[in-house]
Amino acid sequence: MSRFLFTFLILFVAWLGFTTSLHPQELITGAVVSLIIAFVAFKTFTDFGLSFFHPQKIFNIIKFIAVFLVALIKSNFDVARRVVLPSLPINPGIVTYKTELKSDTAKVFLANAITLTPGTLSIDVIGDELFIHWIDVISTDPEVIFNEIGADFEKILKEIFE
C-alpha cells in the first residue's frame, strides 16, 4: 500500500509540473491517470514506498544531487579541455571497478553518475563489477580506481538505498 501511494504521489507531482495548473479538471484527470498507472506499475516502480520520504533520506538525496551537479560541471570542463587542446591529451582504456553496493537501483544510479562524471563511461555491469571506459587511465590499481571514479557517490548512495 505504501509503495502504491509513493508511486501515485510521484506521478501526480510530475503531472502537476507538466500542466502547471490547479484547475479542477486538470487535477481530476491527473489523479485518475496517476491512479491507473500507479496500480499497474507500483510493483516495479519502487522497493521502498513512503519510507523514502524520511528526512534523513531527503537530505542525502539533495546531497547526492549537489555532488552530482558539481561533478557534471567539472567533467564538462575536463572534456572541453581535452577537446580544445591541439595535442588531444587522452590515454583511453577499459578498467574494472568493484562496487560495494548491493541493491540494483543503487547500481543503476552509480553507473549513471559515473557516466556523467569526469572522463568515465560505464559500459556494463556484471554482478558487483562495473566495466568503465576511462579516457585517461592514470592507474590500474583497484584502490586508486575506486577512489578516483566513484567513492564519493558510493557513500551517499549506500545511505539512500541500503
Binding site: 557534471l72 560541471i73 572534456v79 583511453p92 556523467l116 572522463g119 563511461l121 579516457i135
Partner: peptide, 17 residues
C-alpha cells in the same frame, strides 16, 4: 576523437550540460 567510445565520452558529457 579517435574512436566510438571516446566520441561517446565527448558526446554524452558535453551534450548533457
Amino acid at each position: 576523437m579517435p574512436d566510438v567510445y571516446t566520441r561517446l565520452q565527448a558526446g554524452t558529457k558535453a551534450t548533457t550540460l
